[in-house]
Design a protein around this nucleic acid. Structure first.
Lengths: 399, 399
DNA sequence: CGATTTAATACGCAATCCAAATTAATGTTG
DNA sequence: CAACATTAATTTGGATTGCGTATTAAATCG
């Protein structure tokens, strides 16, 4: 257990105030005090220090006061976008998407590299990522020196705490200390995070879970991922290990263990379509799902069957996740959603069937088709969150 | 987020010190200081207050000093057993086990009621539990007034925070506010907890997870339960909902969803044996597993098949749990372990097969055949933990 | 110009840490 | 054998920092 001292106390309250300002836009000190249940005097002290540090700004104007507004007008406070910049990235097998965001998490520049990097050696991938980060930073008319930290979201089994990639479908190697590698290359602190975890935070900050403290997110991409928000914080397994949903076992088949990834992974759904040359090409370029969507619309029976089977498997797995975490909302994201109505319908039906009676109505399913930039923004949010948490500067209290 | 004030700070450090004393037996102040990373002066202040409140005791004697020990000898501190008493209970379909423990969690008296309470109305069950608690307290030569709180561990889906039983195999009714009911009957604060969660804490405090901060426990009884220890604390689902492993879905069968409980629940394993009159009687009396054990030794093929099938299903499910939580250790407990070698072997094989390669070696399986008293003691530990956490008395700091 | 609401300031309390003093047992020595 | 030195644990005093209540200053509307 962490030892509690005044410093921790201040760090907690600082985070609490900063979070209130981030979430509730321009906000006055009194309102912060109400929301955080901190005394006005404490809020004043903390906001004063935040102002000194340049993390927040005051805004007198634009104060749309109520008609019956009397007395001294409130001074609105908001995050100072210029306080820091971070880079977030989403790395997949067929493309990389980078964003530079300001301190608010608003995007300053975006860069998409449609490069296929299937299981290449680390050095190659690291080269590409380094290049992408540098270019995206330049696009934002910044230098890497202006960037506080970088967060890379990628699929697989990631050990967040150590920055180690235990396994990733995009890497040939396993057990790679990628955080150290990239930090050295970029000369900037670099965080490695599961892509699913990154977009989980994106939804908590900007998307469909802003109102919730508990939530589960299922990402359906090349890899099937899981992100868990528990009591307002990202939940990772013991040792900071991220979850890899595709590794879940559905049962024993004749050829051994049947994993979810073999039933519902992108690969599994599209595998049957190899006969079609154009399709194979599309898959290779990461456009497989778009192509599949067209086939589904044309009622291609082979693909329809695969989609329905996948939906069923995922529906069951979601029910299992809900049995374990009981979140009020489950958000589904990822390219596989493009499979459309048949897929979603079988998913929903399987879920409804599989959810235990005692948990009926506990959780709602929500589908989301955010673009890649949103994922990258989530990675940036992870970097920002660690920034908010850190004590920042000296934060000298009294002057 | 909780607002941090000095009171919270003190509560945290108090818990930290109290926990160090609980875990590391008689311990000197310096050693507490080293372990908790609190300054010696803070430790002295807190231990002083704990001494004033009568929660801990000093022990000068019995201080086995090193040969080269010079200088002032250390004063050893330990929990004061008489500081408080709690009652813990394990409620199953075929019996109830009660314990009264002291402040250390040591058992003062035990009471086992071999009563079958299969799905009786709440009032009947509440009557029996009330009676059991009262008798056990009397056996310890105490009065209910001397008991600080009661914790009941029972199978099913329990909402710890509210004390509500959403579903339990031993109750006919669902969604019962059992905490309120029992608190009123006993006129003592009563906590409702999942039996699996209770024994999880028992293992953390007294058993096979004393050295770990992260751990998962699988309980194989009439109901299949799950307990999770995460970063030294019990992990419960959103809203404090406990997990019910038996509800996990293994796949789609011809008759709909196949749940783990239908493959590996006590009922499922023993169901095939109905033809045997003596066996049915044994099951009804909660001795089914003991009987089954005998049959297995006699190599009854029917039961062997059922046991192997069950082991396989549980092995797969454990792999899934490990995929999600990545605990360094998985502890298996419960009556079904009595099925012996064939069951355990198939379980282990299925687990080894199903664990993802990237997580190989992350987790070790440990089997434990603790008796019912240990479960009840776990429930008592849950009550004690909440007691440790609570600010206790006024805890007046300075005098 | 008074009323009213917000922000900043002054004081007291609690809890941390650091440094110095105190206490207690043990070994050593005249 | 008794007084002194030694060593280590604990307590005490003082400075820092935070929160909270109450008071004072500020800014706008009626």
């Amino acid at each position: 257990m962490k030892t509690a001292d005044p410093e921790l106390m201040r760090a907690m309250n600082r985070l609490s105030v900063l979070d209130a300002i981030r979430r509730h836009g321009p906000i006055s000190r009194v309102e912060i005090s109400e929301r955080t249940e901190l005394s006005t005097t404490t809020v004043s002290a903390i906001t004063g220090s935040l102002l000194d540090d340049g993390l927040i700004l005051t805004r007198h104007e634009g104060d749309i006061r109520n008609a019956a507004a009397r007395g001294r007008p409130r001074v609105m406070l908001e995050l100072n976008p210029a306080a820091a910049r971070v880079v977030g990235a989403k790395i997949t097998a067929s493309r990389m998407v980078f964003v530079v965001t300001d301190f608010c998490g608003d995007v300053l520049s975006t860069l998409t590299l449609p490069i296929r990097i299937d299981r290449q050696p680390i050095s190659v991938i690291a080269d590409l990522i380094e290049d992408g980060v540098r270019r995206c930073v330049v696009d934002a008319e910044l230098s890497l020196k202006d960037v506080h930290s970088v967060c890379l979201g990628l699929p697989g089994v990631i050990e967040h705490r150590t920055g180690r990639i235990r396994f990733s479908p995009i890497l040939k190697d396993t057990n790679v200390d990628f955080a150290t590698e990239m930090s050295a290359r970029l000369d900037t602190p670099t965080i490695i995070e599961s892509d699913a975890t990154a977009i989980t935070l994106a939804h908590h900050w900007f998307g469909k879970a802003r109102d919730l403290e508990d939530m589960v997110l299922i990402s359906l991409e090349q890899t099937l991922g899981l992100g868990v928000l528990h009591e307002g914080r990202l939940f990772r397994g013991a040792g900071g290990l991220s979850h890899n949903l595709g590794d879940l076992v559905l049962g024993m088949g004749p050829d051994g263990v049947v994993r979810l990834s073999s039933q519902a992974g992108e690969q599994a759904i599209l595998a049957d379509q190899r006969g079609d040359g154009a399709f194979a090409e599309a898959v290779k370029l990461g456009r497989g799902m778009a192509h599949a969507q067209a086939l589904i619309k044309a009622e291609d029976s082979q693909l329809l069957t695969a989609a329905i089977r996948a939906g069923e498997a995922i529906g069951l797995s979601i029910a299992n996740i809900v049995t374990l975490f009981a979140p009020p909302r489950v958000i589904l994201v990822g390219t596989s959603l493009a499979l459309g109505a048949p897929f979603l319908k079988s998913l929903g039906q399987a879920y409804a069937l599989a959810i235990p009676p005692s948990l009926q109505g506990v959780s709602e399913l929500v589908f989301d088709d955010s673009n890649d930039e949103f994922w990258a923004r989530g990675a940036a949010a992870v970097a920002l969150y660690e920034l908010y948490e850190s004590p920042w500067s000296t934060t000298g209290p009294a002057h």
